[in-house]
Computed example of a mutant assay.
Amino acid sequence: MARTAEKLDEKIRARNIRIILDVATDVFSRKGFDGTRIAEIAELAELPKANIYYYFSSKEEIYSAIIARLISGWDDALANIRADREPAEAFRDYIRAKLDYTARHPRESRLFASEIIQGARFLSLKDRRHMQKATDERAAVIEGWIAQGRMAAVDPRHLFIMLWAATQFYSDFEPLACDALNRKKLTAKDFDAAAETIVRTILGGIILPPPSR
Results as ranks from 00 to 15, higher is better:
175 P>D: 11
192 D>H: 02
66 I>L: 06
67 I>N: 07
133 K>N: 08
156 P>F: 13
199 V>P: 02
71 I>L: 12
71 I>D: 09
173 F>K: 08
153 A>P: 03
165 A>L: 06
75 D>A: 09
160 F>P: 07
94 Y>S: 01
109 S>L: 02
111 L>R: 10
92 R>D: 02
101 Y>C: 01
156 P>A: 06
122 F>H: 15
71 I>T: 15
106 P>T: 14
131 M>L: 15
82 R>T: 09
107 R>M: 14
186 L>S: 04
139 A>P: 05
122 F>N: 14
76 D>Y: 00
96 R>E: 04
82 R>W: 06
181 L>S: 09
127 D>I: 09
188 A>N: 02
130 H>M: 10
79 A>N: 13
107 R>W: 01
139 A>Q: 09
153 A>E: 14
133 K>Q: 14
142 I>P: 09
175 P>S: 07
101 Y>F: 15
78 L>E: 00
127 D>V: 04
114 S>Q: 12
160 F>D: 08
67 I>C: 03
191 F>I: 01
194 A>C: 13
189 K>H: 07
175 P>L: 11
76 D>V: 12
110 R>V: 14
157 R>I: 15
102 T>L: 05
120 A>E: 15
116 I>G: 06
129 R>C: 12
164 W>Q: 09
81 I>P: 05
120 A>H: 00
76 D>K: 13
166 A>L: 12
146 I>P: 05
183 R>N: 10
89 E>F: 01
106 P>Q: 11
96 R>C: 02
110 R>L: 10
63 Y>Q: 01
119 G>W: 08
97 A>W: 01
126 K>G: 05
130 H>I: 06
153 A>K: 13
152 A>S: 08
83 A>S: 13
123 L>S: 15
72 S>V: 03
127 D>P: 11
159 L>E: 11
63 Y>M: 10
127 D>L: 14
180 A>M: 08
136 D>P: 08
68 A>L: 04
142 I>C: 08
180 A>Y: 06
107 R>A: 15
69 R>C: 00
94 Y>L: 15
161 I>W: 02
157 R>G: 11
155 D>L: 11
122 F>C: 10
184 K>I: 00
71 I>C: 09
116 I>C: 05
151 M>G: 12
140 A>V: 12
111 L>S: 11
166 A>H: 01
99 L>I: 00
107 R>I: 00
135 T>W: 06
117 I>W: 00
130 H>E: 13
75 D>M: 08
96 R>L: 04
137 E>R: 15
188 A>M: 04
148 Q>T: 04
134 A>V: 14
94 Y>V: 06
94 Y>P: 02
116 I>R: 00
155 D>M: 05
104 R>S: 10
163 L>C: 09
155 D>Y: 05
90 A>E: 10
174 E>S: 15
99 L>G: 01
66 I>R: 07
190 D>E: 09
149 G>M: 10
166 A>W: 02
115 E>H: 13
144 G>V: 11
120 A>M: 14
78 L>N: 00
75 D>R: 05
140 A>L: 09
68 A>Q: 07
84 D>T: 10
183 R>I: 12
137 E>K: 09
100 D>L: 03
162 M>G: 12
156 P>R: 12
